[in-house]
Nucleic acid binder design. Structure first.
Length: 107
DNA sequence: AAGGTGACTAACA
DNA sequence: ATGTTAGCCACCT
């Protein structure tokens, strides 16, 4: 049985380029819809994993809520822009249009 | 070893 | 409408 962490990572890897997913969405795919914060906790310690498109995981409001000096919000914003995702700077926070870029798991 | 914390979210008062 | 509470699971002290 894979650990929750592995399922989370696996789900994140399935996010297609140019799309984004919320923490809750990933948590749901991993089997625990309410473990969104756990996803964040895992990611915070998994940013060293280069095969993980962590930049595609954002908050439910479409905001980049990263708190990591090595991987600052502006870097995440840059990575997303490079994938074709529109990122808007509001005050000191970055926002993404979820309606438009949210990853639809169906099918 | 045990308890607290966190890149969250949804439900209630 | 805004503020608080509970639930989740792995890592850190």
């Amino acid at each position: 049985m894979r650990s929750f962490e592995e399922r989370v990572i696996d789900a994140i890897k399935q996010i297609p380029t140019g799309k984004v997913a919320t923490y809750g969405q990933i948590a749901g795919l991993a089997g625990s819809p309410r473990a969104a914060i756990t996803v964040g906790g895992i990611l915070r310690r998994q940013t060293q994993n280069k095969d993980l498109p962590w930049q595609r995981v954002i908050s439910r409001e479409g905001r980049i809520s990263i708190v990591n000096m090595e991987f600052p919000p502006e870097l995440q914003a840059e990575l997303l822009k490079a994938e074709g995702v529109a990122v808007a700077l509001r005050g000191s926070a970055y926002f993404i249009d979820l309606q438009k870029y949210r990853w639809c798991v169906e099918i």
